[in-house]
Design a protein around this nucleic acid. Structure first.
Length: 256
DNA sequence: ATGGTAGATACTCTA
């Protein structure tokens, strides 16, 4: 079972790249973030023609998540357990092939000390409560998506430059560790221990050309699933193509 | 040196 996560930064703009990427990589499941698209305008037909079922949870202009799956999806959930009806649309979950899959777009936080930063930290606290109350750590489960946090210095191209900044601050990392300590394993790090792997490069200042990146897109699994992981990788080539998303897809394969 | 680009929307906000 091959599971992928990709922040596409507008599914309508990225549709040609997404279709081509799916045909080349054939994931069983693709979790996407920042669809920036209301559900009525989501290009579902194009994906159905490739053999995928689609569950969407979008809103105008910002945020938005979706799951594409070759296999049937059940028990679809939209939003955190305590979201208000008008909450930002950042989480969609479904059970596929007996694996609980949770697709998240964690708030960016903008800058340390802002209201958006406090919202991000609170959202991560709520995500931990979501696991405590809605999920079973003994079951095969994946959470994947744009976490908007580089968990460690080895996930940052220049840790000194980024120290204390948004995406790298101690409070963000601590809040993310609280989520991880529910019982999750970084599947990518099971296969690659070294520094220098990134999943996001800013559009600005030639960041990709200079490889000024951060590893902020993740795929974490519970132990029962993580031990069946046979590989994980980042499709960096996608970031070098024409009109790319600022994020590269992250993939993991499981022997199930 | 505090920039730069991209996307959606509407003349700015978010990332």
């Amino acid at each position: 079972m091959k599971i992928a996560t990709w922040n596409v930064n507008s599914i309508l703009v990225r549709l040609p790249q997404a279709l081509q990427w799916i045909e080349s990589n054939n994931p069983d499941v693709l979790c996407i973030q920042e669809t920036k698209c209301v559900d009525e305008k989501f290009p579902a037909t194009a994906f159905r023609e490739l053999g995928y079922q689609i569950e969407v949870f979008g809103q105008p202009t910002y945020n938005g998540v979706a799951i594409l799956s070759r296999l049937p999806m059940s028990n679809v959930r939209r939003g955190l357990h305590d979201d208000q009806p008008d909450a930002q649309r950042r989480l969609i979950a479904a059970t596929i092939n007996s694996v609980r899959i949770i697709n998240v777009y964690v708030p960016n936080g903008q800058a340390v000390g802002t209201d958006k930063y406090e919202f991000k930290l609170a959202w991560l606290g709520r995500l931990r409560t979501f696991f405590d109350t809605q999920c079973d750590v003994k079951e095969p489960l994946v959470i994947c998506g744009d976490f908007n946090i580089a968990p460690e210095d080895r996930d940052v191209h220049d840790p000194a430059l980024w120290a204390g900044k948004i995406l790298c601050s101690d409070a963000e990392r601590a809040a993310l560790q609280v989520v991880r300590q529910w019982g999750l394993i970084d599947v990518f790090r099971q296969h690659h221990e070294e520094a220098g792997f990134f999943s996001w490069w800013d559009y600005r200042a030639g960041a990709f050309r200079r490889n000024h990146g951060l590893r902020i897109d993740h795929l974490w699994a519970t132990e029962s699933l993580a031990k069946k992981s046979t590989g994980a990788w980042i499709d960096k080539i996608q970031r070098a193509l024409e009109k790319p998303s600022d994020h590269a897809p992250v993939l993991a394969e499981f022997a199930i």
